[in-house]
Design a protein around this nucleic acid. Structure first.
Lengths: 181, 181
DNA sequence: TTAAAACATGTAACTAATTACATGTTAAGC
DNA sequence: GCTTAACATGTAATTAGTTACATGTTTTAA
């Protein structure tokens, strides 16, 4: 369904950028819900240029380093807007290897299961801390409270969703551990 | 990383089954966290037979319908146990196309965004209802309260996780809609 | 009895994504 | 001045996953 295509169009709608910048964006909050490696990004950018959804200008960085600054064409903007309004069915299977193991908990003994769950709990707690720190920084940069027209609204929503996702996971892990006592 | 391989080994550890049965299992609660189409399952089963992790016996259903009942070998059980205890890193990017759109909310006008969010809220609420119904049925079948040694413990944990995941998503959608007033 | 839904198994073609291979420049800190 | 991290761009090979093609049997309900 070429979601990466729209991820790239959406990022370019915000700003002109290079393939490297796009890869970097996937390392931020956005990466909690979509990401791609540079080996997938560069070929996709080439494809989008052929399809005339994006265009690039070559910029020299320093002495001789050539980088390609990509931007949306009118056609690209139109396709982005079409996708963004489209109502998609909720995707059923959000793959999660830990939950797959959980389904097979009958194959573990109690200590094993507790070990696995506390370990997961620990990882999730550390992840939550990091996300909360990023949110704190984002909020500190803001003068007024964030609202619909803030340029950071999308970033803020994605971050809060990622944080609450972790909190929910953590609560479930704790309750499951309690059930195993 | 061949997670499907372990999904199949895990299912066969519970019971002998056919490829069709495995596909059916992915339509239940397990499918909330892992699934595969039959076109991926059948080749994987063949591969696992070659690797001697599973074996099958041909069974005749009715007059002449041949079906293959797969079961774990000792080698398959060993590999399953090895995987199940292994501590994996928490996977970062849990892909979610709706959250990708959310990140690009600046490209929407307010009504568009509200429309999209209420629509998603609705779908998620309907999904939650279905999951809660399945849990109610599961609990009704149980005589004693579910605990670690109940054969349905894995199923129960996965279901409660799926339900809480939806509840968290719904709460976030509602709070986000409120922010857009 | 007959039609539809469920059971059952496969392959082919294609798309999506990861890992590995491959190379070079620029900026920052010591 | 030198080293390291970050910036920057690509391709090749492989694996994972989806959609489409292809066929046949058995059970259930009208």
């Amino acid at each position: 369904m070429r979601v990466l295509k729209f991820a790239i169009l959406g990022l370019l709608e915000q700003d002109k950028m290079t393939g490297y910048d796009i890869a970097a964006a996937f390392k931020g909050a956005l990466g909690q819900f979509w990401s791609a490696k540079h080996s997938q990004i560069y070929p996709e950018l080439k494809k989008l240029v052929v399809e005339e959804l994006i265009a690039f200008e070559t910029v020299i960085q320093g002495e001789k380093l050539e980088k390609k600054l990509y931007s949306l064409t009118a056609k690209g903007t139109a396709e982005l807007m079409d996708w963004i309004q489209r109502v998609e069915a909720v995707n059923v299977s959000n793959k999660d290897e830990f939950m797959l193991k959980t389904y097979f908990i009958a194959a573990m003994d109690k200590q094993e299961a507790q070990q696995l769950f506390s370990n997961q709990l620990n990882s999730r707690q550390r992840k939550l801390e990091k996300l909360e720190q990023i949110l704190t920084e984002l909020e500190a940069e803001q003068k007024a409270p964030i609202h619909f027209s803030s340029p950071e609204f999308g970033h803020y929503l994605v971050l809060t969703r990622a944080i609450e996702r972790e909190k929910g996971y953590i609560q479930w892990l704790e309750r499951s551990l309690a059930l195993m006592e």
